[in-house]
Design a protein around this nucleic acid. Sequence first.
DNA 1: AGGATAGCCTGCGGGC
DNA 2: TGCCCGCAGGCTATCC
Length: 281
Amino acid sequence: MPELPEVETIRRELNAGLRGLRVRSVLLRRPEVVTGTRTPKALLRGTTFGEPARHGKQLALVAEPGDESAAAIAVHLGMSGQLLLVRPGEAPARVDHVHVEWILEDSAGGDRGRLLFRDPRRFGGVWTFPTFGALRAARWAELGPDAGAGPVDDRLLEFKSSARSVKATLLDQAVIAGVGNIYADEALFEAGIRPTRPMRRLRPKEAVRLSDALRAVLDRAIAARGSTLRDYRTSAGDQGGFQLQHRVYGRAGQPCVRCGAPLQSGVVGQRTTVWCRGCQK
DNA sequence: AGGATAGCCTGCGGGC
DNA sequence: TGCCCGCAGGCTATCC
């Protein structure tokens, strides 16, 4: 499920494999996945890819030179979205649910394969903008600070009078961008904080612990190239490896890795949540 | 303010 | 074997 580590993994791979390639043409197979102008030009036909950008779970494919005035599109992977880089002459693993294809060429006009946006459940999508600056102003301005960009304890303490649970707060992209159900549960376990705890009961020391835990979990997940539960693949089509390191997510009823007691599960912030009653206070 | 609910959509696994 | 049902996850909208 693409959260920050999965999207960052894809961003890095696209930076290595897509940057410098030019869009020869665009095939829009299912137009309704695109919001905004749906012309080939708005979908970057004729431009050369620069370094992709990311904020939280959102990715921006930016044309050279990559500044605020460069052409850009936003891609959100939602639940099941994939951005797959297919080499010339290669066949993608699957061709169903491919909604957009960018046909790629090098500066000499040689075939460099395709980039595919595939999204079976269609919770994701593509948004077109005149410029990267407009994209940031329209789509990223409402997001909180990126969870991977720096400490978030000060940000969390802004909610010190809130009755909302710490889990629901972590999942709110306007508070902190990039955390989803997996990494919220993993970070809360690592920090020893119960997901149901109201924000107003979070002590400053615990906010620091949670910020540190979040950073540590996200770093380890990026190093493992994300978590593949079902749909997530890197742009090379590979699975991530961090699912093997999950301590609580998906482990309801199994023994806590720290104390051995069976892990508790319930619904917190409208999401299935797993925690240890003994280790998380 | 924020909790609850529904909706979007597909695929999978459990139960029968 | 096959059908039905529930559920998974990210996000938005609506109602209370």
